[in-house]
Amino acid sequence: MWKKIYEWLDERLGLNAMYTNLLDRPEPRGNWWNTLGSASLFLFVLQGLTGIFLTVYYTPSPDHAYDSITYIMEGVAFGWLIRGIHHWGATLMVVVVFIHMLRVFVTASFKYPRELTWLIGIGLFLTTLGMGFTGYLLPWNQRAFWATTVGTQIAGTAPLVGEFILKALRGGPDLSALTLQRFFSGHIWMLPAALAGLIGVHLYLIIRHGESYYPNKED
């Protein structure tokens, strides 16, 4: 019975081909440091899932953002857990992605033929920081408000384009409802979309070239 169902699905989906191409591949002898990439992916998925739950109650407006988060923490069943995981997951994701980058740097895994994987990886790192930066404002509390104030101020010191960057980030000269709205949009649509796309390419390149091996004196 199960075999029949499997065969029916395999005929249409090509499960066997997927198994041989994606899973049953040879890899160089593994190393625990090599798990940091998949750990970053896991954190991305976890942040996505908890983030989706949070949008059920979160309201991106200066009048209600703070209260909606208080409600998530106090009123919603296990809301504190979901928010807690999202909060700490953000911190951990920055740490894990950064250490992953250090590992790739130290083992020189960015060299031929994985140069493009490194470029995409830098994009992933910067987008992750962008996720942290945009997400930090959303609770609309004092810490968030003033952190974003100085953050955008620093971006605004760039010569020539600084003024434009500042206004584009804030949606005006000051932090306002517009800032919150566009940080929210960036945090839940633009940056995750960019992140997901880049992760796709990153994974494709990893499967194509295989994981790098741990170098020794020969290399």
Binding site: L22, D24, R25, P26, E27, P28, R29, G30, G210, Y213
Partner: peptide, 9 residues
């Protein structure tokens, strides 16, 4: 390195 390595799955 692959020959003396492991399986992904």
């Amino acid at each position: 390195e692959l020959n003396r390595g492991e399986r992904f799955w």
